[in-house]
Structures are given as C-alpha cells and as structure tokens.
Design a protein around this nucleic acid. Structure first.
Lengths: 118, 118
DNA sequence: TACATACTGAACCATATGGTTCAGTTTTAA
DNA sequence: TTAAAACTGAACCATATGGTTCAGTATGTA
C-alpha cells in the first residue's frame, strides 16, 4: 500500500528474495552475459528476463550496457557491502539475545539449587 | 505468478526487504515485546503488526508465545546464518569479478604500451 | 535487399503485499 | 458482573510482482 520510500536495503533484499535473480547473480559471477542468454538458461521469455534484470539494476546489483543489438549484463560495482553489514550486525544481535537467555536460565538453575539453603 | 516453492532464503530475504520488519528485529534485539507494543511503536494497527510478525515467523526469524492474552515475540534461534553465508559468498564473487576486470584493463594497458614494439 | 536476431514496450493476468476496518473471543482487573 | 485490553480472523482495497503475448524497432548477415 502506497510504498512511501523504499530504501536501498529494501530494494536489494527484495531483489535477492527471488531464486531466479539469485541465480542470475551466480551466473554473472562466472562472466558477463546477454539478456537472451540468461532467458535461455532460466527458460523464460526475453521480456520476463528483462524484468528480472531491471529489478537487479534498480537495486544496483547489476549494470547493463547495450552494444549493437545485444545488452550485456554484469555485476554492479556497488556489491553487497551494505547488505553484508546489516546481516552481520544483526546476526550478532541474535546471538547476544541467546546468550542473555542462557544467562537467565543459568540464574534460574542457580536459584533452584539455592532453595534448600534458603 | 503461481509461486512454486519458496525456499527459506526467499522467505528470509523477502522478510528483510521491509523497513518495518527490519525495525522489529532491531527492537527484539533489545528485548522481547508484545504485538500491541510493537504496533504502538510503529504506529500501525494491531492487525497490521500481526501480519508483519507472521511474515517474520514464517521466515523463522521470530518466534512467538501466547501467555494469557498477550503474545510475546522474540528473535528465532534460526538466526541469520544462512543469509550471512549467501551474502558473504557472493560478496566475494563480486570482488573476484572486479579483479578480473582490473586485470583485463591492465592487459589492455600493457598491449597499448607494446604497440610501439610490435 | 531480405531475413533473422536481440531487444523494447504495452497490455494483460493471477496472485502477493501491506495496509485498513469491523466484528468477534479470551483474559484480566475493578 | 461488567468493562477494558489484547489478540484473531475475515473482508476489503490499492498497488506490486512475476510472468505471459503481441506488436514493434534496431542491428547484423547472407
């Protein structure tokens, strides 16, 4: 509903949420490729593939260049730095939470064994 | 269109593609919280917030437990390991591609300076 | 010149998404 | 026992998504 902004992180995580698009990135890691070649590999119409590439482009993950009649796609220089940073920071958050929980459990165990002494 | 499967990565990246949901994760990193408290903080109806939490739950990023009339949300033990791994592997792919490109450019420079000698 | 290739854009379709309201149910507290 | 609080579920709405087809345009090639 009325998508107000849509930050870079919104766009890149959204772009990565589709298996076909993750596959395109895999493919482009092997080397630059045309839209029609990608369409071929992923068994999809040219038009369909073009849409996927556009999503990746909007996310800055892929750049394209048209020379003659073929548009070549390659990985964007933007990379996945911001995404890696978000994920890494929050992976640590998850872990910290579980450590906190473990401590709580240990405290509870402690209290349990203290009961006879109180 | 007819979403065939929808892998765990699909679900988690999709869950992370919304700023509100990333905010919920931030929040839960600080401590467990009820749905209504989250709805309050993000200025949204209870029903709306419940949907966001459900998306995070389906992705395994959040677990909930209802005690009495309040449902408490906390970070799921699944964490962000798989996501971190995908991102990290592909971040390297991006970098490798640029190194390959740099080499190509260096080769071309080399050829350029060789021209007088050939 | 004529034909094939590679892309582009518009239109269409079914389903998903991100919200809302409204009408419940269950708990808790006065 | 009555009322408020916290959630739940159904229905609705506008827009987005992931595809398709069809009708172009531009570029290469025989």
């Amino acid at each position: 509903m009325v998508q107000y902004v849509s930050s870079p992180l919104d766009r890149s995580f959204s772009a990565l949420s589709d298996a076909t698009r993750r596959g395109i990135i895999d493919q482009l890691g092997q080397g630059d490729t045309s839209i029609s070649s990608l369409a071929d590999q992923f068994q999809m119409t040219l038009t369909g593939m073009k849409k996927h590439v556009q999503v990746l482009q909007l996310a800055g993950l892929v750049v394209t260049q048209k020379v003659g009649r073929v548009r070549t796609c390659r990985l964007g220089k933007r990379g996945l730095k911001a995404e890696a940073e978000w994920i890494e920071a929050h992976r640590k958050l998850f872990e910290a939470r579980f450590e906190a929980l473990d401590e709580l459990i240990n405290d509870m165990k402690q209290e349990g064994s203290d009961e006879s002494a109180s």
